[in-house]
Design a protein around this nucleic acid. Sequence first.
DNA 1: CTTAAATAGGATAAAAATGTCCGAAATAAC
DNA 2: GTTATTTCGGACATTTTTATCCTATTTAAG
Lengths: 144, 144
Amino acid sequence: MFSKACEYGIKASIYIAANSYDGVRVSLKEIAKEINSPEAFTAKILQDLVRNKLINSVKGAYGGFEIEKEKISSIKLSQIVNAIDGDSIYQGCGLGLDVCDANHPCPVHDQFKNIRNELRYMLEHTNLEQLALDIKSGASFLKI
Amino acid sequence: MFSKACEYGIKASIYIAANSYDGVRVSLKEIAKEINSPEAFTAKILQDLVRNKLINSVKGAYGGFEIEKEKISSIKLSQIVNAIDGDSIYQGCGLGLDVCDANHPCPVHDQFKNIRNELRYMLEHTNLEQLALDIKSGASFLKI
DNA sequence: CTTAAATAGGATAAAAATGTCCGAAATAAC
DNA sequence: GTTATTTCGGACATTTTTATCCTATTTAAG
């Protein structure tokens, strides 16, 4: 469904959010360990999220990544997916046609429209706070 | 959502079904042209579908690909997707966890469960006949 | 039997995604 | 100021996906 990069990006964001909730800044090393991802590759993805202003980074000793507390509940999964994978998951035709709309539908246009819309709705209405709280309470997991 | 291979496989199957409906066998060359796909790559995918007994092939002059008429309505999209991309689209965790179930859910387990189930239901309940008839009537398109 | 047309399948190539390495820059602590 | 720590960013490497090429095999037609 998502690229590996996007999976790592989502998990990293949730981990950062869960810690920022307690005012704790976390390092790349810690993030990669806690979400079980390759460190250097994760660094690239975090850079991307920083450039998209979804997370903040602080260089140097005692630096790391964080999200402003007030912002945590306003960041939607869709923003993370969009920053990393783009919008092809919403926009694109299920069978890869360049043009695919009601006037010129691919064979599965209608069937996919529903599913894509639900996926879009879900991603646009799920925010980092919900997900971070479940991690903090132990109701959900980022690895194994 | 699907791999290119799977997109080509679905489109090719629909094109073959639409022609088999009229008792016409079609060649690789014709298929690739009509679904706008690279010929040699499409050949590999068709071989795969033949090995999975979803379509039949006939070698030699006047050969090509076809689907038994009675079988067209019984072939579900899910069978084609399964033959090419495997079942990761149904089974896999949305965030790539090796283990992700109700007891040990990833942060988006519940949200994805619904969407994956709807996708699965749709693929398991959409058959080649429906899709082929729309192509024949001009209600849907395989290219451009 | 010969020829032309077609799929089968192995080997190879190109492109994209994933992953690694290393030096530069920034920052806190001493 | 020096040092240790940490992100940034460019270059490179590996793996997977996508795509191509070429030969063998099969089959209908003449």
